[in-house]
Design a protein around this nucleic acid. Sequence first.
DNA 1: CTGTATCCTCACAGATACTG
DNA 2: CAGTATCTGTGAGGATACAG
Lengths: 117, 117
Amino acid sequence: MGNRLNGFGDCSIEVERACPIELTLHIIGGKWKGVIINILSKKDTRFNELKRLIPGISQRMLTLQLRELEADGIVKRKVEETIPIKVGYSLTHQGESLTPIIQSMRMWGNDYISKNE
Amino acid sequence: MGNRLNGFGDCSIEVERACPIELTLHIIGGKWKGVIINILSKKDTRFNELKRLIPGISQRMLTLQLRELEADGIVKRKVEETIPIKVGYSLTHQGESLTPIIQSMRMWGNDYISKNE
DNA sequence: CTGTATCCTCACAGATACTG
DNA sequence: CAGTATCTGTGAGGATACAG
C-alpha cells in the first residue's frame, strides 16, 4: 500500500472521523489523479494515449502519478511484451469504486462554474 | 471568487469534462480543508474551537485555509463585536452542497482502510 | 512506446513572535 | 480571542535529456 498520511495515526478523538476524508483526498488529490481516474473509468488506456489526452502533463508526472495510484491499489498496469512494448492502464475494483465520487465532483464543479461565472 | 486553476482554460476538447473535477479537487484539496468542511457541516464553529478540534494545525494555516474557503464561497465568516472579539465560521449554501461528497469520501476512506489493513 | 535520470524553482507549509 | 508578520525549509512538480 502507498504512503500513509503524515500523522495519520495522530488523529484525536475529536477528528478521527475526519481522517478517512484526508486519506481519500490524499489518494485522489494529486494534481493529475482526478483526470487520470476519470479517463480510466471510461476505458483502459495506454501510456501515450493518456499523455495525449492530458495536455500539459509531462512524462515524468504521468509516470509518477500512475505509480502512486498503482501503489495505492487504484490502478492496474499491464505490460504487452511486443516490440515496441505497450503498457495498458486500467482501474482496479477499488479504483472503480471511486468513480461515483469523481462523478459527483464533476457535477459539483460544473454547477459551481455555472453559478460563479 | 478565488484563484482559478492554472491552465484551467487550457482544457482540450478531450479533457474538458475532466476540468470541473480538477476545480472541485482544487477547492476542497487543501491540506486541512476536508477536515474544516467536515467540522463546519456539523455545527458553526469559532476560530479557537476549530484550532482545538484540529490538532496539528497552526494558527497561520487555519487562517489561510479559512480565507481560501471564504474566497471560494464555501465558508461564511461572522464577526461578533464583543470584547474579546468572537468570529464564527459556517458553511455557505454552496459549502453545504459539498457535504455529500465529503461524506462519500469519508465512507470510501473507511472502506479502504478496512480492506487494506 | 514507455519510461528513468537530473537539475531546478517556487509555492506551500512549519515555527515563532507579535498585536488590537 | 482571533488573528498578522517574518523567516525558513521541504518537496511537489516542471524542463530537458537519455535509454531499453
